[in-house]
Design a protein around this nucleic acid. Structure first.
Lengths: 206, 206
DNA sequence: ACTTTGATGATACAGCCGTACCAAATCAAT
DNA sequence: ATTGATTTGGTACGGCTGTATCATCAAAGT
């Protein structure tokens, strides 16, 4: 048979081009031609791999979520060989904050998707419930493990705190995005709440 | 002289039409023709009061912020004749949560504006820094008053907690918006954090 | 080597968008 | 009644959008 090209990789390349241009000019302002130009291919090729724009956007969202997942796990691994629950939770939440350019793009484009998803059923279907729910489950589980290891202050409800931490991180993130708050300030607030939940290793009281 | 019409009121009527249709179909999908139809006027009239779409959007944002301010103060007043700081803070934060249709529209359209503002300098200029900063100042001041009245648990930093509460409320709000979380769940998380900050009136411990 | 199949490029089509222009009503106050 | 602000209607222009059509080019297997 003819030419062999890895379809999945081509689609990923195009999807990353979509994310890049969306991060620069906003998702609402992204056209097929922009994506094609950013990816360095022809408009026709974008249509060839994604027949319609809706499918492109959908795949772009999946790709974005996947890339963020990789980033998050990479951050967690960078926290040490066998990081404690606190370090893992902190790495997880900090990875979601738009501090550097990559995470800023991620947060921005993802929020744009979220806004679109409110009125677009096709977008809302999968990721915007399943994805944060998974994160909440993960953090909840980490807090449970921490509680068993007696790393938490007494009276801490893992599920409630996990939900709060994630919502807090999201809110701080958009605060940074719109320029209301600096990354340091957001990190300080987040750190304060982690201190509130976790015992400080060395001392009993802060 | 000819017909006397209150320009400010007409502009407000059109702006509310903009908010309504934006709440239904999304801000990105709003056109001048849609606004005109929703307001029950001609397209020409919309151009008459707002020469350009950008000015219409700008005024729509100001109008939205103003309307939300009124709603918030009304909610605070509804909390009682002389509500305690906790009731005021709670009313403030709860007013921002998209529970009923009105607040849902507000939160949705406002978030849409925030996303637009990231790439649109004209939109970002005023409201997205000044506005939340004012809210943070207000909550901070309320917490300070509460601390002086010995209503807070020891070791509470008003500014830090105010920033956290507002970011938390914003994050929970978008969580509700995208369908990840119910209003009750969000209210529970928020209430938990208020309990954490404020003393429960009757008892020393929860 | 050639054909088949995949990949690519250029062009064109409707359709909607914001904006603009023109002409004609409508109505209150002088 | 004249004046002038207000409102409406129609109509049209570029420009952009997503999508479709046509033709072409490259490679792999019988």
């Amino acid at each position: 048979m003819p030419k062999r090209v890895d379809h999945a990789e081509r689609r990923s390349q195009i999807a990353e081009a979509l994310v890049r241009v969306a991060g620069r000019r906003g998702l609402h302002a992204v056209g097929m031609r922009d994506v094609a130009a950013e990816a360095g291919v022809s408009l026709r090729l974008v249509q060839y791999y994604f027949e319609t724009k809706e499918k492109l956007l959908l795949f772009g969202l999946e790709h974005l979520a996947e890339r963020f997942g990789e980033r998050a796990t990479s951050r967690v691994r960078a926290a040490g060989d066998s990081p404690g629950p606190r370090a893992m939770v902190e790495a997880l939440l900090m990875a979601a904050l738009p501090t550097d350019e990559e995470s800023r793009t991620f947060h921005f484009v993802y929020t744009s998707y979220a806004v679109l998803a409110v009125t677009d059923q096709a977008l809302a279907a999968q990721p915007f419930i399943k994805n944060p729910d998974a994160a909440e489950d993960a953090v909840t589980e980490l807090l449970r493990q921490a509680r068993e290891a007696d790393l938490l202050r007494p009276g801490v409800d893992p599920r409630l705190e996990a939900a709060g931490l994630l919502a807090l991180s999201a809110g701080l993130g958009t605060g940074i995005l719109v320029g209301q708050r600096g990354p340091e300030s957001a990190a300080a607030v987040l750190g304060h709440h982690l201190d509130r939940i976790f015992h400080t290793p060395g001392q009993g009281r802060e």
